[in-house]
Design a binder for these strands. Structure first.
Lengths: 129, 129
DNA sequence: CATAGGCCTTCCCGTCACTGGAAGGTCAAG
DNA sequence: CTTGACCTTCCAGTGACGGGAAGGCCTATG
């Protein structure tokens, strides 16, 4: 299977797949003409990667998860730890963004948004004492 | 005022201030020895930038906000639009992260996290049909 | 006066996970 | 035989800095 169909199957851009090969996440074979030749297990890996990335895992997390996935003797604790740390980072980011959102909502609400120059948004940014 | 104290006053790393000068957000003068010389208005701008960045505005948003801030004849509608668009992006990102968090929570909850290899996290990533 | 060390300067590379684009090879259809 | 859709590699850019090297400047102390 060429990279185009692999991309379709895995739901990833071809560029991304080439990048994943560059950094050693997948190692497809090659046809005589130099084209990458993806087999079922490559597609399976790419699909795994696409899903892990969609859950926000970093590339390095993905590399570790992939290794654990392929190691049938792994301990689930190792997987769980990666997921828990990632979950904590996500929750922390959500909290940060929630704070920003609350502040912005107040500012937007209080801004007339008309032709006049008075603007609590700029006022707050410039002098929030 | 040298960059070190400017950094302290504005609550920004010196490196960041140099970067802001590079991209034209601030234009401090120079002393005879080549050192940057920050005056009160520079500090005020940097403080403005630090706050806008803390609210998650992009550098380009900050550039626009700064221009509006300095234009005393601006229309508050222009400011409000930038803030509203940013707010929408934040809310969208919060929603995305919330979805990730929910999925991850379920996966982590269902994973024993012990020495055994069974792991619903890897199972889901590999075969979430 | 020399020196130590704490500022400051510029410059360049690295981050993260791609994305865009150029220049060129390959393949199937008409 | 040409067209156009694929494929290849390589290089550069993204956003918003951070690290670190190489070197100049300033102040305080011996």
């Amino acid at each position: 299977m060429n990279i185009g169909e692999a991309a379709t199957q895995a739901g990833l851009p071809a560029k991304t797949i080439r990048y994943y090969e560059d950094i050693g996440l997948v190692k497809p074979g090659r046809d005589a003409n130099g084209y990458r030749a993806f087999i079922a297990s490559d597609i399976h890996k790419l699909t795994f990667l696409a899903r892990a990335r969609a859950l926000g895992f970093s590339i390095e997390d993905c590399r570790d998860l992939l290794a654990l996935w392929e190691d049938t003797g792994r301990a689930s604790a190792d997987v769980r730890q990666i997921a828990e740390e990632h979950l904590a980072r996500i929750e922390s980011k959500i909290a940060d963004l929630g704070t920003m959102r609350d502040t912005l909502r107040v500012l937007v609400r209080d801004c007339a948004g008309d032709d006049r120059p008075d603007c609590p948004i700029l006022q707050t940014l410039g002098n929030p004492s």
